[in-house]
Simulated assay, not measured.
Amino acid sequence: MAESSKFKRIVLKLSGEALAGDDGFGINPVVIKDIASQVSEAQKLGVEMAIIVGGGNIWRGKIGSDLGMDRGTADYMGMLATVMNSLALQDSLEQLGHETRVLTSIEMKQVAEPYIRRRAIRHLEKGRVVIFAAGIGNPYFSTDTTAALRAAEIEADVILMGKNNVDGVYSADPKTDSSAVKYDELTYIEMLQENLQVMDATASSFCMDNDIPLMVFSITEEGNIKRAVSGETIGTTITK
């Protein structure tokens, strides 16, 4: 029997650092091609896929703010970093033969389409991979919050959060605490109460209020995006 997706429509959230690989900064072409290949294999299962990429591999608004920059300016720079990452991912996906559209919350018609909810849904229905860039277009909001908001807007079944340095949610940092315990399942209330910092509190509360499940898993293990899409139990699942 042919493999199929457990979900009709998903939002895949990737950190900017996931595109840097071991370099820690910038866009690693080998890594981004590997991620695009994983996305390609997952989409073949028939899932409608939207992607949101952070910009931390290029710029973090909070760091700029902490160093004395105007927070709004620093955050807008971070939004532009997500556009660069989105265009790089779009290019890799199109080289694999996938129609891909980048939709930005900040208008820049020469490089991407403006975000319009109905247009995004129509692209997904036509089988295109949609990449949401430039956050929600406002400072002070993270790409975690963008993922939560866009998932609600397009009525996604789940947010898949791919991490490049951990294979799920732990009670503490497993790199520094040998007693850290991995969770298979959590509720949003437990995640907030224990301050596990999987995603920021705004995004977590939004997902909880709108009953959007979240699956946290390792992006570096080959085939994990496909496994997550097909419904395999990997990483940590967080629900209302």
Rank of each mutant, 00 (worst) to 15 (best):
M79Y: 06
M79Q: 06
A81N: 03
A81W: 09
M84Y: 14
M84T: 12
A88R: 05
L89M: 14
D91W: 15
L93R: 12
E94T: 10
Q95M: 11
L96Y: 01
G97W: 00
E99Y: 14
R101Q: 11
S105D: 10
I106A: 04
K109Y: 15
Q110W: 01
Q110I: 02
P114S: 08
R117D: 05
R118P: 00
R119C: 03
I121K: 03
R122A: 09
R122I: 10
K126V: 03
K126P: 00
K126G: 04
G127P: 00
F132R: 07
F132Q: 06
G135I: 11
I136V: 14
N138Y: 13
P139W: 01
S142E: 09
T145M: 07
T145K: 02
T146Y: 01
A148C: 08
A148T: 14
A148L: 14
L149I: 13
R150S: 11
A151E: 11
A152H: 10
E153N: 05
I159E: 05
M161R: 12
G162I: 15
N164I: 10
G168I: 06
V169P: 04
V169S: 06
S171Y: 12
A172H: 09
A172D: 12
A172W: 08
D173H: 02
K175I: 01
S178F: 11
S178N: 08
S179E: 08
A180F: 05
Y183A: 02
L186C: 14
T187L: 07
